[in-house]
Nucleic acid binder design. Sequence first.
DNA 1: AGTCAACTCGAAAACGATTTCGTGTTAAAA
DNA 2: TTTTAACACGAAATCGTTTTCGAGTTGACT
Lengths: 349, 349
Amino acid sequence: MKPKASLKMIATELDVSVSTVSKALKDSKEISDSTKKKIKAFAKLYNYKPNNIALSLKNQQTNNIGVIIPEIVHHFFTTVIFGIEKYANEHGYNVIIGLSNESFKKEVINLDMLANGSIDGFILSVAKETLFNADFHHFEETIDQGLPIVMFDRVLDNLHCDTVVVDDVKASKDAVRCLMESGCKKIGIITTEDFVNVGKKRYEGYKAFLHENNLPFEERYALKVNDAAIGQDNEQKLETMLYSYFRKNPDIDGIYAVNEFYAVTAMKVARDLGYAIPKDIQFIGFTDGVLSKHAYPPLTTISQPGEKMGEKVAELLIRRMKSQHKGKEVEPTRVVVDTKIIHRETTKA
Amino acid sequence: MKPKASLKMIATELDVSVSTVSKALKDSKEISDSTKKKIKAFAKLYNYKPNNIALSLKNQQTNNIGVIIPEIVHHFFTTVIFGIEKYANEHGYNVIIGLSNESFKKEVINLDMLANGSIDGFILSVAKETLFNADFHHFEETIDQGLPIVMFDRVLDNLHCDTVVVDDVKASKDAVRCLMESGCKKIGIITTEDFVNVGKKRYEGYKAFLHENNLPFEERYALKVNDAAIGQDNEQKLETMLYSYFRKNPDIDGIYAVNEFYAVTAMKVARDLGYAIPKDIQFIGFTDGVLSKHAYPPLTTISQPGEKMGEKVAELLIRRMKSQHKGKEVEPTRVVVDTKIIHRETTKA
DNA sequence: AGTCAACTCGAAAACGATTTCGTGTTAAAA
DNA sequence: TTTTAACACGAAATCGTTTTCGAGTTGACT
């Protein structure tokens, strides 16, 4: 194990001062060519790399971005991370991942663990429990401490931070329109409970479209899943909910599900109940992931551009950090990215 | 925006010395109760948190773990990250993610970006291109610099580092046995090219089992996919390869695929070609993910315990870092975790 | 009254790097 | 010969924290 090289080590070894070494390595013209050569050669030999921690302390910036997301085993979030990491790396930043597991407490802990100098800014998507509690003081505090936050997907308004979202209402209308144009007369929705704001908005878009187009709506058409209790792990409960849903709504011929997991699970139950897809009942899901692509039949979905969202959110954060460093204060930006429909085989049109 | 609190700031404000503040906050008995109270109250008011960067510099340890993986939009890797993050967080460590995207160059860059003081140790799974190049000097160098590495899944032998793997040969034999016991007579394999060492080992297990059980084997039974060219994105090529594979091997009645992506794609092609699953042809995949669970029909798979592997790999790294900090040198450990078969509907038995 | 311990606290070094501001040497200009 | 500028380098502060060591004050005990 080699001794790790530092400026001091090089300095004593070469019998010059630390400042000389530092300057030589940065090609300062204060230093003569001969000593520069000597120092550089020695540094290369010992594979010297400036210590990042020391630099962070000196410069008061770490070049680290903290990303806190509700789940990691999740197609959409990983595509976003992919975009973030790509943009961040290209701009000299590292990405530290924190997982809230949809828990308020873990979200707070993660924020605290990182908000003590480890990072220069946060990117995050709010945990469901936090949305449910409607307690956002931890966000306000970290912003108040001078750490910028950029939120995506599950964002909060009324917070001094940039956001990157899709237009959930519009995308929902598109989805339901797709179903309508494929011949559906009675369209149901599988969504989350209202405290999940994206679920709520998608539900609103759904209802609005039905109303605008004189399509029938009844409360029983909507299944609001409380997956605080469920989660991907015990899909058993979800299935039983779906069985009773289909029995209550034998007349439904189109289903809009606010995520692909709900969609494929609903399809499974429907097939079990004897429905043919898309002949008897058609499906469209939100968020295009592996599930949709490889479902049977392949699921028509609203595609959210996760990677692009990731890049955008990283760009916003880095921009904000830069300008904050210069003392400028930028007004919060809201970026809305476009969704598009991917037509596959669960819809006729 | 509040001024960020530091020891110095508290000290000048309260007209005591920095050392007094530091000690008071740590409840040192050197400090009188009255000043302790005063200082603590002030610190709380200003929400003082010790600056992690300064601590890292002082203690020569960052409490950060660097994780470098080939892909993030990937079920298995994310489950591993989940396990890592869980264990790391419980033990006071943060996780920095680096993505190699299967590229040698990006792997080296990521290693370099982090190996300059940002982290205390690495967890990684080797990029395919690196395996192909068979150039591992960057790993050797970082280990030589005193940064411990723990590898999982795609690991390297002959490197001074701990590893966490599954017994690919044994798992493969189990898989083929499952097919055999379900009545398959001619069993094919969809695998990677040999430079991907796990692919190679799984292929070896497959051949060994056939041989041990007097089952037929011919070269044409094996499709070795070079997905340096393919990747999840253009599955088009994979499909064409599969079409020609099935046409060359009309007699095959069982297929073992070394990952779930190959498996479901093969199933899709097979269905297209008129095979009924599992009546005409049976399938088993490696690595249980969302794809397998929601494929049609649901895919029988070998399940790798990603989360457990993540926890284990984090445990090994933290143990190694601790003992290295104490100056002890531990011998490399190799942990083999068990796989198990999850019987679903692509096999008869 | 003198000694000594117990209490409180502060000064300073250390981690590794950057940067400002000297300072001494040399060579050119007056 | 003296002034001055260019050149080459070093000392020291700084970032925020911890920790060792020393020092001053107080009280008790001989």
